[in-house]
Each structure stands twice: as C-alpha cells, then as structure tokens.
Design a protein around this nucleic acid. Structure first.
Length: 277
DNA sequence: CGATCTACCTGATGGC
DNA sequence: TGCCATCAGGTAGATC
C-alpha cells in the first residue's frame, strides 16, 4: 500500500501526536506482525518507555525511544497505524495495540499481515535489520544535486522503473509513484538508465522530487479499496492528481492519447505512449 | 552479479 | 446468488 508520501504523512502526524507519550502496555495478537524477535522481548522493550521522535527512511517509520531503542514499522501492502481512544471499537485485523499512560492508543491493523513491527537499537541494527541498513538515499530527506543523481543512474544499468523502485538505490518509491514520476519526466518505464541525455537526467531528477513533494502535500494516495488511511483514518487526496496510475483506457490529461497498461516485473505499469519516450 | 518467479495473506471485483 | 479467477500500495528468497 503505502509508499514514501503515505508513510511521510503518517510520520508527520505521529511527530505531532504521539511524541512525548509514555507507553503503559503493549498487546500483540497473532504471530505474523511481530516476527523478527520474540513477542515478549518486543513488548518488554516498549513498555515503560517514552516516545522521543519519529523519523522515516524510505517506507520505514522509525520511532526513537528514551531507552535508546528504536521501534521500526513497515506497513508493506495493507498495514495501517491508527490513533484511537482506549474504548474505540477494535477493528478486524488489529494485531498490535500500544496503550499510552494517557490519551489513548496507537494500533497496528493489517489484513494481509505482510507488514511488521520490531524493536532494535543503533548498536545492533546491522544484524537486526540489514534491510534498513541497506536502504539507499531517501529523495525527500536527503536531497542531492542532479549531477549526483546522474552518477547514480550511470552506476546501474537497468530499466528506469527498476531503478526508481530499487530500495537499495532510492528508498521510498513504489509502483504508483514510479509511474507518476516517469510520466512527469516524459520517459518510458523501459528506457535504460544509461540511455538518458543530460536533459533527461535533469528532468527525471526534478520529477522524482516534485512528484513526491506534491503527493505529500495532498497526504498521499488512497485507491478504490480504501486501504491507505492516515493516522486518524482519513484517506489521502493525491489519487485525484494521478496522471497515469490506474488510468488505463482513459485519455491522457496532457495529450488526450489513451493511457496504456503494461506488465513490468509482474506489476502493472501505466504510461502515456505519446508523452513518454 | 542481474533477472525472473514465487510466496507470504485477505479481500474486492468481475465474468460466467 | 454463487463460484472461480484475477488483482492489489511490497519485498525476501530461491532459482536460473
């Protein structure tokens, strides 16, 4: 489900709403959402700690705790973090409930159970979470020059969509935003990284940054199944601004050609055959 | 090394 | 209605 803009929306809300709160109790039900460490350890390392900050790298949310530990959350396809009152009805597929000493709870809900939570520490994260350590550059948190971006492109010979969605190169871009970025850049998903002119490199870098910032401004994208909602259960609005994603057989908003749907790496890919070359 | 595919899950949707 | 196939924001791991 969520990509960088959706995760960033939740991060910003958590920064305002849960930082400073102290965890009273943690409840874990089911076996899949906390799977990287024993449930008991997960719970004991959280209970009694205070949340001191919320950061993000790619699609990971990292909550800093006053114990020095880090609570890591990855929502994968269908995870939601929801701020609730203690007495609010418990939604189906609620797998983790964090109750604060005051002012309610933070709940983790995830129908498909692909997402996960775990507690780690800066000293042990190399062993605990190699997937976090190996993340590439977060294009929103770590801005770079377009020349540096060009060097990254040249260092990997692959198709543009594979480049954009490889979390060890750029962290945070998934299936929706790679398609939207490539439309904004006027480039096809199957162009190779080493085929771009200087102008195209600049266009692509600009599209990465602008598309992600735009999507954050509109609180991310909620698709027809309503799976993505923010910390307070509210859907995003960026789907109304999609130029290509989910718009196959519709007219391109720019040139009126028909948007095409293709398969790339077993995923749907949408593009305008006339605006993207 | 890269690319390609499969598996992990539940639920919504569409065709027959 | 029901049944079955297909698809969905992601990524790790096996295989070639």
């Amino acid at each position: 489900m969520p990509e960088l803009p959706e995760v960033e929306t939740i991060r910003r809300q958590m920064e305002r709403d849960v930082v400073g709160k102290k965890i009273k109790t943690v409840d874990v039900s089911g076996t899949r959402s906390v799977r990287r460490q024993p449930k008991k350890q997960f719970i004991s390392r959280l209970e009694g700690t205070k949340l001191t900050g919320v950061r993000r790298k790619g699609k990971f949310i990292m909550v800093t705790l006053d114990s020095g530990d880090l609570l890591l959350v990855h929502l994968r396809m269908s995870g939601q973090l929801l701020r609730t009152a203690n007495k609010d009805e418990v939604a189906k597929h609620t797998h983790v409930t964090i109750t604060f000493t005051q002012h309610g709870q933070l709940r983790y809900v995830d129908p498909r159970t692909f997402g996960e939570l775990f507690v780690t520490n800066p000293d042990t994260i190399d062993e605990d979470a190699p997937d976090v350590v190996s993340l590439g550059i977060d294009p929103v948190e770590e801005p770079m020059s377009w020349t540096n971006f060009g060097r990254m492109l040249m260092a990997h010979k692959m198709k543009l969509k594979a480049f954009l969605t490889d979390q060890t190169i750029l962290a945070g871009i998934g299936n929706i935003y790679s398609d939207e970025i490539l439309f904004a850049a006027g480039l096809r998903y199957d162009r190779t990284t080493d085929s771009l002119s200087t102008m195209e490199i600049r266009r692509l870098y600009r599209a990465v940054v602008e598309t992600l910032h735009d999507a954050i401004k509109f609180s991310g994208s909620t698709l027809a199944d309503d799976q993505y909602v923010d910390l307070f259960g509210k859907p995003g609005e960026y789907q109304e601004h999609h130029q290509v994603y989910g718009r196959d057989k519709l007219a391109c908003r720019r040139c009126r050609s028909v948007i095409t749907k293709a398969k790339f790496a077993q995923r749907s890919t949408y593009f305008c055959p006339d605006c993207q070359m």
